[in-house]
Each structure stands twice: as structure tokens, then as C-alpha cells.
């Protein structure tokens, strides 16, 4: 269980990296944290001709506020994002989700951008990035694209990133101070990928949901905001279990859950509904505090 041979490139600057990507394109794999790529290499499920290791490029790991927006560099390690005071203030949902990502040794190495670029349907970070309407910054030697998270994820392990592009970071616009966040996950064991998880962001005014965003991880092939559910919840009281239940019952018409031998689609749908109801309970409990 050793990787096939590859050519190892180690750019020192972003420009170098982009030039390499321009040259190698689909034949290259970008090595950031390696927590998903290296197992695939070891299993020889991935056999890229070239590995472009971006770990030495300065500045790709920044976590900072630029203007009003939170910028998370693509190579920011999960552990750094999880512990960042800046993230805790500007986008607490990220930290809530990251507590569910794998285990400490993996979080010490795995990167925020790597998780987005991989687009594993069961991963937490893509879901919260969609929930927060993040803008994914993709650079190539010809320029930079800002790809809205909503159009970034195109399927299982498939994104809008082009072969010559490098994901360099994500920007998050601030949400108002009256937003509440919730992230809940069902995983088989502590630290496992999500069988289902919910990311919720919502403005709560006088006990009622205003504008809100609902995204699931692990349920569908890609995370997406569920406009119908968000509309159903808008205006509902947090205490109005019936309204939430109705929104949950509506999920069947909205979701297209992953089918599997051990976990059938109906099960993931059930988990999604129950996660929505748990979100309500959590909001209610937090309001009572």
C-alpha cells in the first residue's frame, strides 16, 4: 500500500504554483494537508503524474478580516480555524462545524481549502461554506475567479475548479449580530464523516425566524441551500414545533438523498428531518438561557 511514482514539485510562490498548474493541469494533484489525497495515493486510487505541494507558499494560511469580510486562506489548518478568535467572532458556524471534523491529528494537518476542493459529500466544511454563502477564490496564471459556494459543488468529488486553477481561499460576508447558528451532526463514531449534518444560520427576531439558511451535509451528493425549507421556516416561531415539523416533512419533496446499501436514502432523509427538529430545540434552549 505505497503510492505509485509521481513527480514532486514544490513551488515556493503562488506564481510558481500557478505556472505549474498551467503546465500540468489534469495530470497534477495539489497537495495541501494531504489527509484525503495521501490515503488515495497510498491506495493507488489516485495516481497523478505530478504532485504540486503548496505547503511552502507563504500567506496561503492567513485567517484575517479584510474590509468587512472574513478571509480564510485555503491552507489554513482545521486546528487553526477551530481555535481562531477571528473566526469565532466573524463566523462561529465554522468553528461549530470543525469540532466535528475527524480527530486532532487530522485537524492539525488537514486544510480548509483542501476540504472544499475535495468536495466529499459527507464533509462538514463544504456545507458550512455554502450555508454562509462563502465566495471561493480560485486563482490561475490568467487571473482570479470568485466562485459563489452555491455554484462551486457540482457532485461527488466534483467542483467548478478548473484544472489550471488553485483554490487560494474563501471570503465570507458578515452576517448580522442577530444571526444564530447551529451545526449538528450524526456520525457513526466520534470523528467519522457525517451520515447527515445540518448547518443552520438564521436571524431570530422576537422568537421568530427571519431570513435563514439551511444546508445539509452527508445527505445529498453536494451541499446546497434549501430554498423551500428556508421559505417554510421564515416567519415561524422557534417555539412552533408544528411549523418546523411541517418544514421537516417537506424535506422529502426537496431532497435527493444518497442511496446506499447500509444507509438507504430514506434513512438519510429521516436523519435530515430529525436534525431540523433538533435545530429548533437547540435554538429554543439557547433562547431560554
Amino acid at each position: 500500500m505505497k503510492p505509485a511514482r509521481f513527480r514532486y514539485l514544490r513551488p515556493e510562490t503562488l506564481e510558481e504554483a500557478l505556472a505549474m498548474l498551467a503546465e500540468w493541469g489534469d495530470d497534477a494533484a495539489v497537495l495541501a494537508g494531504g489527509q484525503s489525497l495521501v490515503p488515495m495515493l497510498n491506495l493507488r486510487m489516485a495516481q497523478p503524474a505530478v504532485l504540486i505541494d503548496v505547503n511552502r507558499i507563504a500567506g496561503l494560511d492567513r485567517i484575517e478580516i479584510i474590509g468587512e469580510r472574513l478571509h480564510v486562506g485555503a491552507r489554513a489548518r482545521h486546528a487553526e480555524v477551530l481555535r481562531s478568535a477571528t473566526v469565532a467572532r466573524a463566523a462561529p458556524l465554522l468553528a461549530l462545524a470543525l469540532g466535528n471534523v475527524a480527530h486532532e491529528a487530522v485537524r492539525n494537518r488537514g486544510t480548509f481549502g483542501g476540504s472544499l476542493a475535495l468536495a466529499d459529500p459527507a464533509a462538514e466544511i463544504p456545507a458550512v461554506t455554502v450555508c454562509l454563502d462563502g465566495a471561493i477564490l480560485a486563482r490561475s496564471s490568467t487571473g482570479e475567479r470568485r466562485i459563489p459556494a452555491a455554484s462551486f459543488f457540482e457532485g461527488v468529488y466534483t467542483t467548478a475548479l478548473r484544472p489550471e486553477e488553485l483554490l487560494v481561499g474563501v471570503d465570507f460576508a458578515p452576517l448580522g449580530p442577530d444571526f444564530r447558528f447551529c451545526f449538528r451532526e450524526v456520525s457513526r463514531r466520534h470523528g467519522d464523516f457525517a451520515l447527515a449534518a445540518i448547518a443552520f444560520a438564521g436571524r431570530i427576531e422576537a422568537g421568530r425566524v427571519g431570513e435563514c439558511r439551511v444546508v445539509f451535509a452527508g445527505v445529498e451528493e453536494s451541499p446546497r441551500r434549501l430554498a423551500a425549507v428556508e421559505a417554510a421556516l421564515a416567519g415561524a416561531a422557534v417555539s412552533d414545533e408544528q411549523a418546523w415539523r411541517a418544514a421537516g416533512d417537506g424535506l422529502g419533496a426537496v431532497l435527493d438523498p444518497i442511496e446506499g446499501a447500509e444507509y438507504p436514502a430514506a434513512y438519510r432523509l429521516l436523519l435530515a428531518r430529525n436534525l431540523l427538529l433538533e435545530t429548533r430545540r437547540q435554538l429554543e434552549e439557547e433562547a431560554a438561557r
Binding site: R188, R189, H190, G191, D192, F193
Partner: peptide
């Protein structure tokens, strides 16, 4: 990741 053994947290 497919064959699950019990871990300390569970």
C-alpha cells in the same frame, strides 16, 4: 473507514 472498530469516544 468501512470496517468500524470501537474507539475510545464511543
Amino acid at each position: 473507514a468501512d470496517y468500524l472498530v470501537p474507539m475510545a469516544g464511543d
